[in-house]
Amino acid sequence: MDPQELLLTGVLAPALAAGVLLGLGWKVWRREDADSDGRWSGAPALAIAFLLTFYLLSGMPVSLLPDSPRTPTGLDWLAWLAVPAIFLLPLEQKLGRWKHLLRGVVAVAMVRLVLNTAFESTFEADVGRRWLAGLSALYMLIWAALTRVCGQRTGASSPLVLWTMAAGLAVLAALTGSAKIGQLGGALAAALGAATVLAWCRPRLTLAGGGVGLALLLLFGLGMNAHVYSYTESTEILLIASAPLFALLADLPPLRFKRPALRTLVVVLLTALPIGIAITRAAMAFAAESDEYGDYYDY
């Protein structure tokens, strides 16, 4: 693919969209919340940036209506799910203890719908139930860990942790079969990169009002597509999924630092550790399967 087109569709467009929407949200909601700015703009900014790149790469997602000309794929379902998530996920902040119910519903719905074709044609009933239960539980575990690591924080730390995960997933997906999933992960990384830069300039900016949940929805959905429908191995996917759990180690005494910059550095390094291992493993496997016919990414 033309590098300029790649840069425009996969990086500049989503970064610009996310930056503009986060900036607008920061202006609109700055006086409504005493603790932070732009609390409600994180989810729409990330979702719209992702959907913009999706559209530029593949056009509109396939219709979910029965008379659709094509069967929707896992990526189509993920794109459609991002739309209600814009409105649903910010409610998490207002639900108190009931937020766990919301998370459970989102987890089950996301896993079931993104893996719809697998549930309908590949998985036997009991296998499908195990996938649904296992992945939903994993999703909720990661959500809880991410909330603890960055959910309530303002400043660049949260988007930087999420950027590390998105960029890692993008590279991993591209190395293990699907450049398209890689580009969509890259678009999310670009949007989170814009959020990081803005939050650096404006430390009161936050992704807590649904932004973290939406980033996780897209990350987990892309990860499931990469593993179930492409060729990303379980080990690599689990290493990426474990990144927020590694980041929690920053709360342990030997690694707990009070200086925000130092703490951010430790959290990002801990997040990057399993991701780096996953990418190294995938790169080695890719190199081992490469042959004299050259680099197939030479488009």
Binding site: T73, G177, K180, I181, Y229, S230, Y231, E289, D291, Y296
Partner: peptide, 10 residues
């Protein structure tokens, strides 16, 4: 590697 790419969602 190219087989995987052709078989992938791409």
């Amino acid at each position: 590697n190219r087989d995987k790419h052709v078989l992938s969602p791409d």
